[in-house]
Amino acid sequence: MGIELELHSRRPARGKTSEATLLQGSYAHGEALAEALGPFDRSGPGKLAWVDPYGDTLFNEQEAHAALAEAALLIERCSDASQKAALHDLVALLEQCAATPGSCLWFMGD
């Protein structure tokens, strides 16, 4: 199981190629990111709890901004180097998404 990330300039169309809107992706840390987000209660508060490790989840720029504090806290608490690297990629993409009006961050679960 893994979670890959893609930052898009706008919401990608379902069932169509998303290359036209793709700004940046993170594909190297899928399993580590899934493990780092694993402790979240899927019915609990917070934005990162929304991420479905088995499906797709989209954050708009407001949701990305709200998730930044959660991701930073995870980095502080994380002791695993590969998970920490995955979380740093996540924070970088959350920051870019939050700063880009109309953009979205696509979490692609297995």
Rank of each mutant, 00 (worst) to 15 (best):
H88L: 15
A13F: 10
G25E: 09
A72L: 08
E35A: 15
A28W: 08
L74C: 15
G38N: 08
G109E: 04
L93C: 09
A34H: 06
E19H: 14
S43M: 10
P101H: 13
L68M: 15
A92V: 03
S26H: 05
G44L: 01
Y27M: 10
L22E: 01
S103K: 06
D110P: 12
T100Q: 13
K84Q: 11
G2N: 15
H88R: 13
L22D: 03
A66L: 15
R14L: 12
P12Q: 07
A66T: 12
T17W: 09
V51E: 04
F59C: 00
H8S: 09
F107M: 06
D52I: 05
S103D: 03
L37V: 08
A64N: 04
S9T: 12
L87R: 13
S9P: 03
G102N: 09
S9N: 10
A81F: 08
A32D: 03
A64M: 01
E63Y: 02
R77E: 12
E95R: 15
E76Y: 05
F40E: 10
P39S: 04
S43K: 13
G109L: 01
S43T: 07
S82T: 13
S43A: 10
F107P: 13
S26R: 09
Y54L: 13
R42L: 14
M1F: 06
A72V: 03
A92W: 02
P45H: 02
A85G: 08
L73I: 10
H29K: 08
A64W: 00
N60P: 04
A13K: 13
K84I: 01
A67W: 05
R77T: 11
L33N: 02
E35Q: 11
L87S: 12
A72P: 00
E76K: 15
A34G: 06
R11D: 00
A34W: 08
E61S: 09
H65C: 07
M108T: 12
A71L: 07
A64V: 02
R10A: 12
R10L: 02
E35N: 11
L37Q: 06
L7N: 06
T21S: 08
E31H: 05
A85C: 09
R14H: 13
E70H: 10
G2I: 03
H65S: 14
T17N: 10
A34V: 01
D80M: 03
A86Q: 14
L94F: 06
A71F: 05
L33D: 02
P39R: 04
R42F: 12
M1R: 08
L94M: 07
L23C: 07
A28E: 10
L87H: 14
E35V: 06
S9W: 11
F59R: 00
H8R: 10
L90C: 03
A34T: 02
M1S: 11
E95K: 15
G55L: 15
L33Y: 05
D80N: 15
L58R: 01
V91S: 07
K84W: 02
V91K: 04
L58S: 00
P39T: 06
S43Q: 12
C104N: 06
A98W: 12
P39Y: 04
G25D: 09
P101F: 14
A69F: 07
L68K: 15
E19L: 14
A20D: 14
G109Q: 04
K47H: 00
G44E: 04
M1K: 09
T100Y: 05
E95V: 13
L105V: 02
F40I: 11
V91W: 04
G15S: 11
E31C: 01
M1C: 05
C78K: 05
